[in-house]
Protein backbone atom coordinates (compact mmCIF):
# COMPACT_ATOMS: atom_id res chain seq x y z
CA UNK A 1 0.00 0.00 0.00
CA UNK A 2 1.11 3.52 -0.76
CA UNK A 3 -0.32 5.01 2.42
CA UNK A 4 -0.33 3.24 5.71
CA UNK A 5 -3.88 2.47 6.78
CA UNK A 6 -5.41 3.96 9.88
CA UNK A 7 -4.24 1.98 12.85
CA UNK A 8 -6.38 0.96 15.80
CA UNK A 9 -5.90 -0.81 19.10
CA UNK A 10 -7.71 -4.14 19.12
CA UNK A 11 -8.58 -6.10 22.25
CA UNK A 12 -9.02 -9.86 22.10
CA UNK A 13 -11.78 -10.14 24.71
CA UNK A 14 -11.25 -13.88 25.04
CA UNK A 15 -7.65 -13.37 26.13
CA UNK A 16 -7.95 -10.13 28.13
CA UNK A 17 -7.94 -10.79 31.89
CA UNK A 18 -8.13 -7.16 32.96
CA UNK A 19 -4.60 -6.63 34.31
CA UNK A 20 -4.70 -2.97 33.29
CA UNK A 21 -1.08 -2.71 32.20
CA UNK A 22 -2.27 -1.11 28.94
CA UNK A 23 -3.87 1.68 30.93
CA UNK A 24 -0.67 2.22 32.86
CA UNK A 25 1.38 2.34 29.68
CA UNK A 26 -1.00 4.56 27.67
CA UNK A 27 -3.62 6.20 29.90
CA UNK A 28 -4.64 8.60 27.14
CA UNK A 29 -5.52 5.80 24.74
CA UNK A 30 -7.15 3.08 26.81
CA UNK A 31 -8.68 2.62 30.24
CA UNK A 32 -10.43 -0.06 32.24
CA UNK A 33 -14.08 0.45 33.13
CA UNK A 34 -15.72 -0.41 36.45
CA UNK A 35 -15.73 -4.10 35.48
CA UNK A 36 -12.03 -4.01 34.51
CA UNK A 37 -13.00 -4.28 30.85
CA UNK A 38 -10.71 -2.27 28.57
CA UNK A 39 -12.22 0.69 26.74
CA UNK A 40 -10.41 2.16 23.74
CA UNK A 41 -10.53 5.95 24.07
CA UNK A 42 -8.87 6.89 20.80
CA UNK A 43 -10.40 4.99 17.90
CA UNK A 44 -8.05 6.08 15.16
CA UNK A 45 -4.42 6.44 16.09
CA UNK A 46 -2.37 9.32 14.74
CA UNK A 47 1.36 9.08 14.18
CA UNK A 48 1.82 10.91 17.47
CA UNK A 49 -0.08 8.16 19.29
CA UNK A 50 2.01 5.34 17.90
CA UNK A 51 4.77 5.17 20.55
CA UNK A 52 2.22 5.03 23.38
CA UNK A 53 0.04 2.55 21.51
CA UNK A 54 3.05 0.31 20.98
CA UNK A 55 3.90 0.59 24.66
CA UNK A 56 0.37 -0.49 25.58
CA UNK A 57 0.61 -3.47 23.25
CA UNK A 58 3.94 -4.51 24.72
CA UNK A 59 2.71 -4.09 28.29
CA UNK A 60 -0.16 -6.56 27.94
CA UNK A 61 0.99 -9.66 29.83
CA UNK A 62 -1.25 -12.02 27.87
CA UNK A 63 -0.79 -10.46 24.42
CA UNK A 64 -4.49 -9.62 24.19
CA UNK A 65 -3.88 -6.15 22.74
CA UNK A 66 -2.72 -5.65 19.16
CA UNK A 67 -2.29 -2.83 16.70
CA UNK A 68 -4.05 -3.21 13.42
CA UNK A 69 -4.94 -1.24 10.34
CA UNK A 70 -8.40 -1.61 8.76
CA UNK A 71 -6.96 -3.56 5.83
CA UNK A 72 -5.81 -6.35 8.12
CA UNK A 73 -9.36 -7.56 8.74
Amino acid sequence: MEHAGIERLLVDRNRCEGYGMCQQAAPDLIHLDDEDEPVIDVAELSAAHKPLANAAVRACPVAALTLSGPTAH
Binding site: R15, Y19, Q24, R58, A59, P61, V62, A63
Partner: peptide, 16 residues
Protein backbone atom coordinates in the same frame (compact mmCIF):
# COMPACT_ATOMS: atom_id res chain seq x y z
CA UNK B 1 5.97 -3.05 33.23
CA UNK B 2 7.46 -5.38 30.63
CA UNK B 3 9.37 -7.75 32.92
CA UNK B 4 8.97 -11.41 31.94
CA UNK B 5 8.78 -13.03 35.36
CA UNK B 6 5.20 -14.17 34.78
CA UNK B 7 6.03 -15.23 31.24
CA UNK B 8 4.11 -13.68 28.39
CA UNK B 9 1.28 -14.46 26.01
CA UNK B 10 -0.87 -17.59 25.95
CA UNK B 11 0.79 -19.39 28.86
CA UNK B 12 1.55 -16.32 30.97
CA UNK B 13 1.04 -17.00 34.68
CA UNK B 14 -2.70 -17.28 35.31
CA UNK B 15 -2.22 -16.33 38.95
CA UNK B 16 -0.23 -13.15 38.43
Amino acid sequence: LEHLTFGYGLHACAGQ
